[in-house]
Design a protein around this nucleic acid. Sequence first.
DNA 1: GGATGTGAATGTCTTCACAGCT
DNA 2: AGCTGTGAAGACATTCACATCC
Lengths: 219, 219
Amino acid sequence: MKKARSPVEPRGKISESTVRRLSSYLRLLHEADALGQETISSEELAERGGTTSAQVRKDLSFFGSFGKRGLGYSVPELLREIEGILGLHRRWRVALVGAGKIGSALFSYRDFQRRGFHIQAVFDSDPGKVGASWGDLRVRHDQEMDRAIREDAIDIVIVAVPAEAAQGVVDRVVGAGVRAILNFAPTRLRVPESVALRYVDMTVELEGLAYAISGERLR
Amino acid sequence: MKKARSPVEPRGKISESTVRRLSSYLRLLHEADALGQETISSEELAERGGTTSAQVRKDLSFFGSFGKRGLGYSVPELLREIEGILGLHRRWRVALVGAGKIGSALFSYRDFQRRGFHIQAVFDSDPGKVGASWGDLRVRHDQEMDRAIREDAIDIVIVAVPAEAAQGVVDRVVGAGVRAILNFAPTRLRVPESVALRYVDMTVELEGLAYAISGERLR
DNA sequence: GGATGTGAATGTCTTCACAGCT
DNA sequence: AGCTGTGAAGACATTCACATCC
């Protein structure tokens, strides 16, 4: 019997696209699980996830053999496995920097909490915002940030400040030991190699759409 | 003298990553232009855009020869060229569906307007939200959507409704002739081949970060 | 029988390296 | 001399196709 590799020991380096797809398989698995579906095929995962069955199997094969030939995958089991792979068995401590419109929308985004990402602190430099009650948190002053991040053992920082302020914030949180950053500010950031950084850039997406529909291009 | 190809006639099919990078070069060019910088090298574009100079030159070469050897690129000229490539010489008419927290944050996001993406209409199905004043718009009822999208000649729809409602919205707006959709709902959508679709999926990004920092993986 | 797991083949994207202009 | 533009090489990702096992 072939043993599944430990989820933290993938074979080879895993591409960002594979990780993204795992995340989307996970979402489908949650949906299927909620419906009481017990088993799922690579074909079904593929179809609903916008890829091919071979791709699904390949993605999973980097981490182990989770299916049964002739049958498919057990929904709850695969769900657990992917959670393990992505590191979602634990609670992640998140801080939000920037209490403006975007910060506020992110704060009330229920999905984060549901997936184990817990916002522990909110910071802003605007004295008009500091002190406001957000859920059971209070918006704290920017000055407290560095210390609070250490004390609260924050794992991930979400940056939702204006572009001009973003690099400064990032330098400070990296200095405070944060190793993962999700940036909503419309600017490219510099971080040390050891820090994971992702961008959510709505302008880039809109411009991509503009490109796709302007002129009559063959796609 | 080598002539630049027409911006709407790229050589070959252009990858999504190239288009994304063009968008980010454009941002840098706007910054450089605002500072009065007249010329820029592929090296500088690369460094500040998180890629390599060869990549920058290759990306641009799909569309023409915009630089001067020994000198680099003229900032205002390259800016114009990339705007042309991406289709930003025109105003894009955007509708926002979903007047919740995320919709509201997107509505007040100044960068869209600045880049030529103008929100012309906002829709929601919640009677409690319909009629509210947003800037000089009023939130309109969902029922009006199909007709309004045709009448307002909407080019792009931003979907910011709950996951369960998203596919229904998309089917309707596609039926109303929309060919580009930016989806913020945490679900995968089905659209005809001819419709351009992009996702902004914050959960996928956070899970990607979790993967990157959980365990001690070599990257 | 039916779906997985996976080498091999194919396809795509990135990097190299240098000829060619300015 | 300096920096672009670009074929060719190399790296990486996806798809094929089939042996393997439930």
